[in-house]
């Protein structure tokens, strides 16, 4: 009677014997794989799913049979064990159903392990929701580029990695000159328009691997991995020139702004991620003092 649960439950269940032949395949697996139990039962599991014949999966099976432990395949690391189509049409984020899977032992009445089971849970919706939240959480609402929190976490990650493995990376801090004047003369809506125009222009210049974030009001920060001062200086100079040449049309009026920039680099003596920001900030303020529309490198 309880056998019915096997097919009623909203979870995929696969049972394999010690020769890796399929012994059980529940209704859920039939529905999502399009393979009926009678078609797959008794056949070698790896014939149908050759991609799982990899060292990690095989080790996991051996370990379940020898020790009776459980092995886990999280969605975060594996995305899925079985390449099934997603059932939700609303979300095109994932090509395949996102799965959280685990395997464990099945014992006979003498406690001897005869089979292993794999259960498959569809976590696509949760994963999509989680990813959406993550994205909202790392973007600036106005400009759509990364926000300060995200940049700071990337920066500390990058910093820790460079402390461990060496190498170089740079930060460019930039600030719109006389932004208060824009706001006062043309209104805050125009100010927001300028912020968007500047950020999208700078974003169009950076490489795929760089991170551009809105750091504060009219201040932006760009993290350049694997880039030393000379190259970072060139990049910053390109930002400056691009904004200097840019003409923004707001309500029929042409508005031009300039930016000041400070550049810092990871090197010996810089003991924290915060110190890198501080060095770039100091350079930025020197650029302001020395007349604006200018790039200054940390000393």
């Amino acid at each position: 009677m309880f056998q019915q649960i096997f097919d009623a439950i909203n979870i995929g269940i696969v049972i394999l014997d010690k020769d890796m032949k399929v012994h059980g395949w529940n209704r859920w697996m039939e529905v999502h794989s399009g393979i009926a139990e009678h078609e797959i039962k008794g056949s070698s599991f790896f014939n149908t799913f050759p991609h799982l014949n990899n060292p990690k999966f095989v080790r996991s099976c051996k370990s379940v049979f020898s020790f009776g432990n459980f092995c886990f395949f999280s969605q975060k690391l594996h995305h899925h064990l079985f390449p099934f189509k997603t059932t939700s049409y609303a979300d095109f984020r994932f090509e395949f159903m996102q799965q959280s899977c685990a395997m464990g032992p099945l014992r006979d009445e003498n406690n001897e392990i005869k089979y292993l089971f794999i259960y498959v849970q569809d976590v696509t919706e949760v994963a999509a929701y989680e990813q959406k939240l993550l994205e909202i959480n790392m973007r600036d609402g106005l400009t759509g580029i990364y926000n300060r929190r995200f940049l700071e976490s990337k920066l500390s990650e990058e910093f820790n990695r460079h402390q461990r493995y060496g190498g170089v990376f740079s930060l460019v801090m930039l600030d719109i000159d006389f932004f208060k004047k824009v706001n006062d003369t043309h209104g805050h809506q125009c100010g927001d328009f300028i912020l968007k125009a500047v950020s999208s222009r700078v974003a169009s210049i950076i490489r795929n691997v760089d991170y551009l974030a809105r750091y504060g009001g009219e201040e932006f920060c760009c993290l350049l991995p694997e880039t030393g001062i000379p190259a970072a200086l060139t990049v910053a100079e390109r930002f400056r020139a691009a904004i200097e040449q840019q003409e923004t049309n707001y309500d029929g009026e042409i508005i031009k702004v300039t930016i000041s920039l400070g550049v810092s680099e990871f090197r010996k003596g810089i003991e924290s991620a915060e110190m890198m920001v501080k060095k770039a900030d100091e350079a930025l303020y020197r650029a302001k003092r020395e007349g604006r529309n200018k790039v200054v490198v940390m000393d």
Binding site: N69, F70, A102, N111
Partner: peptide
Amino acid sequence: EVGNILIGACVGKLAELLKDVVTYTP
């Protein structure tokens, strides 16, 4: 992965000799 296997091996064999069956959290 290695942790899971090492722990499973040691705890599992110990439990087996004492005629117990244990399960594990991730």
